[in-house]
């Protein structure tokens, strides 16, 4: 039996007295694209942030490639080299050009020399279709372009796992497509992705697994066809019908 790339076991997390995650378990194989869906406040983003330890857990176990993620002696910076993250608000470094955003990590964290980092950085910008904007500052880019730079920045670290925290929800509707397209390309290339998103188009076409999270626990977990067409839990069904209703009015 091969060891899963990411395994989460009985994860608990609370903020004060409010329990956000109540015993979540999840496994991902190399190349999996898992999409987390669920109502707002269900703990999706928190779960994501526990994986690269932007948030500390209360109890449970997270292992990446068999290595304990949450241990006190785990080197978080070492862990974060292997786990890239794409943010809802992009969080591009405002004082750096697109290319410098992409090369900062390789230069300062991986210790690459400037010329190599730039060459690799240009390749990553090309991968997201933004080579021509290499010298633009974030403020000069559209939302969709910013998010694509955000993806290139995460890719530049050559991570084993990419986390996407609602990557399209801060975007104008007409800009969502370009970001989804890039994500779909990455999925096709076999990059392992854990995605919090309600972008159904992406979920249907690129996801290997859909996880429905509600009230801090995983209600349903399955391949997209099954979960979308024949949800077993009533809560899933209700959530999906609300989502469809919203999609049709939008």
């Amino acid at each position: 039996m091969t060891q899963p790339l990411l395994s989460i076991d009985d994860l608990h997390k609370s903020y004060g007295s409010e329990e956000v995650l109540e015993g979540v378990g999840l496994e991902m194989e190399q190349g999996d694209v898992t999409v987390l869906i669920g109502p707002s406040g269900s703990g999706k983003s928190t779960l994501l942030r526990c994986v690269n330890r932007l948030t500390e857990i209360n109890s449970g176990r997270i292992a990446l490639d068999g290595q304990d993620v949450t241990g006190t002696d785990t080197d978080v910076n070492e862990l974060r080299k292997q786990v890239g993250m794409v943010f809802q608000d992009f969080n591009l470094f405002a004082h750096l050009t697109a290319l410098e955003n992409v090369t900062l990590g390789p230069k300062k964290v991986l210790g690459m020399d400037a010329a190599d980092a730039e060459e690799a950085g240009r390749t990553h910008l090309e991968q997201v279709g933004l080579l021509e904007q290499a010298d633009s500052y974030p403020a000069e880019l559209s939302g969709g372009q910013k998010q694509r730079v955000g993806i290139a920045r995460a890719l530049a670290m050559d991570p084993e796992l990419l986390l996407f925290d609602e990557p399209t929800s801060a975007l104008d509707p007409e800009l969502v497509g370009e970001v989804v397209e890039v994500m779909r390309d990455l999925a096709a290339e076999g990059i392992t992705m854990l995605v919090v998103s309600h972008e159904m188009d992406f979920a249907r076409s690129a996801a290997s697994d859909i996880v429905f999270l509600d009230d801090g626990e995983i209600v349903e977990h399955g391949p997209p066809e099954q979960l979308f067409q024949n949800p077993t839990a009533e809560r899933t069904e209700q959530f999906l019908s609300r989502l469809h209703a919203h999609e049709e009015t939008a």
């Binding site: 974060r80 943010f87 920045r153």
Partner: peptide, 15 residues
């Protein structure tokens, strides 16, 4: 300076 800037810096593995 927006807090997300440091979060993003931490996320790429900078101390």
């Amino acid at each position: 300076v927006d807090g997300g800037q440091l979060t993003a810096a931490r996320a790429i593995g900078l101390s």
